[in-house]
C-alpha cells in the first residue's frame, strides 16, 4: 500500500484523465445525440431511417469493438494515425454514447402529451414558439433521468480506454496491481471509490437538474 500512497499523484492524474475523457465525451455525445434525435423524429423519412439504422447498429455493438474500429482498424486506412490518444478515446466513447443520448431524448419527447402541442397551436403559437416554450422544456425535463443514467454509464465506460493504452484510472489500477500483487483488493477499493465518487457526482447533478425543472402538472 505504501507504493500507492507515495505515488498518489499518479492515481490523481489518472483520474484527471478519466474526468477529461468523460467530460469531453459527454459534450460530444450530447451534441451527436441531439443531431441524431433531430433526424430520428424529423419529417424527412430518409434521415429517419439513417438515424434509426445507426442507433440500432451502434447500440448493439460492444464499446470495445467501437474502440477497435477507431484504434486498430482506422489506422490501417490511414485515418487517425497522428491523432492524440485522448482525442481518439473521446471519439470512440462519443460515437457509442450518442446513440443512448438519442434514445434518452427521444423518450423525453414521447412523454409530452400531444394535447400540449395542439393547445399551443390553437392559441396561435408558431412552430418555433411551440418548440421553444411548450414542447422542448417538457421534453428536456422528462429526459433528465434517462440522460443521467446514460452519462453515468458513459463515465464507467471510459474504463475501456485502458485496453487501448490510454493511461486513465483503470490502466493505472492495473499498473499498481502489477507492482503490488499482495494488496490487489485494497488497490481495487481505492480505484472503485474514485469511480463511485464520479458516478455519484453525476447522479447528484442529474437530481439537481430534475428538481429545478419540476413543473406543476
Amino acid at each position: 500500500m505504501h507504493d500507492v500512497f507515495s505515488n498518489f499523484d499518479k492515481v490523481l492524474s489518472a483520474f484527471w484523465l478519466t474526468i477529461q475523457l468523460a467530460v469531453l465525451s459527454g459534450i460530444f455525445s450530447l451534441l451527436g445525440g441531439i443531431v441524431l434525435v433531430a433526424m430520428r423524429i424529423g419529417p424527412i423519412a430518409v434521415l429517419r431511417w439513417l438515424a434509426t439504422i445507426y442507433v440500432t447498429l451502434v447500440r448493439n455493438t460492444p464499446l470495445l469493438m467501437v474502440f477497435t474500429f477507431i484504434f486498430v482498424a482506422a489506422p490501417t486506412l490511414g485515418w487517425f494515425t497522428t491523432t492524440p490518444f485522448l482525442l481518439k478515446g473521446v471519439i470512440a466513447v462519443s460515437l457509442y454514447t450518442c446513440t443512448f443520448v438519442c434514445e434518452a431524448l427521444r423518450s423525453g419527447v414521447n412523454t409530452v402529451p400531444i394535447g400540449q402541442a395542439e393547445a399551443a397551436r390553437a392559441i396561435g403559437l408558431t412552430f418555433t414558439q411551440n418548440l421553444r416554450h411548450i414542447v422542448l422544456p417538457q421534453a428536456f425535463h422528462a429526459s433528465v433521468p434517462p440522460l443521467t443514467s446514460t452519462f453515468i454509464a458513459m463515465a464507467k465506460n471510459t474504463s475501456v480506454a485502458a485496453v487501448f493504452g490510454l493511461a486513465e484510472a483503470t490502466f493505472r489500477m492495473r499498473y499498481f496491481t502489477n507492482r503490488n500483487a499482495d494488496v490487489t483488493i485494497w488497490i481495487f477499493i481505492i480505484f472503485a471509490v474514485g469511480y463511485i465518487i464520479l458516478v455519484e457526482l453525476i447522479s447528484a447533478g442529474g437530481l439537481l437538474l430534475e428538481r429545478r425543472g419540476k413543473a406543476a402538472r
Binding site: 485502458a162 485496453v163 483503470t170 489500477m173 492495473r174 463511485i196
Partner: peptide
C-alpha cells in the same frame, strides 16, 4: 448493490483475475 452498480465492470474483472 450501490457499490457494484457504480463500479466499472472492467475493474471488477481486473480484481477477480489478479486477485
Amino acid at each position: 448493490v450501490e457499490f457494484f452498480r457504480a463500479t466499472p465492470v472492467l475493474i471488477l474483472m481486473l480484481l477477480m483475475f489478479f486477485q
